[in-house]
Amino acid sequence: MELKDFSYARTILEQYPPERRFLLAILQDIQKHYNYIPRPILEMLRDYLDVPLSKLYSVATFYKALSLKPKGRYVIKVCDGTACHLKSSQSIIDEIKKVLKIVPGSTTGDGKFSLETVNCLGSCAVSPVMVINDRFYGRVTPSRVREILEEYGRLENEQTWK
């Protein structure tokens, strides 16, 4: 998948009738495909749905799940909800910060990882919880953080070797 190639956005748009009620669903699909909402696509969407750009911008900046800046290929969400907080989610965040050298809300320079904190992922029983893309990790400890992240490191290398 070429990130700079916005032509696929057309395909995403055309899966939906050009009606405003699909706005959020389309934005979610775009976010999923590109890891962010590229500006040219926002403009494409403006023309497709006939919605003012200001409205789209308002929606795109409102939801945490949408981002106007490119997110990493792996989005790490560390739960900092009440239960996880009590089970010292902060030490996990600190560990990730140390390993990846990023703060919550930012992305590593190579565009590989983004770090975010979220409020309760609904799995308090196995707190502290962390999610990377769609994978859940329960009862995370700082030492496991390194292991987990390393897995992703290797994964990435394997892909580039091919």
């Binding site: 500006r39 003012p52 750009l53 200001s54 789209l56 911008y57 308002s58 900046t61 409102f62």
Partner: peptide
């Protein structure tokens, strides 16, 4: 429709898209 509310919570503000000169 040149301006709208942007962001939310303590970062909410009124602005043009991308804080740029609006084209409309």
């Amino acid at each position: 429709f040149a301006i709208s509310t942007v962001n939310r919570g303590i970062e909410k503000k009124v602005s043009t898209p991308f804080d740029e000169a609006s084209d409309v």
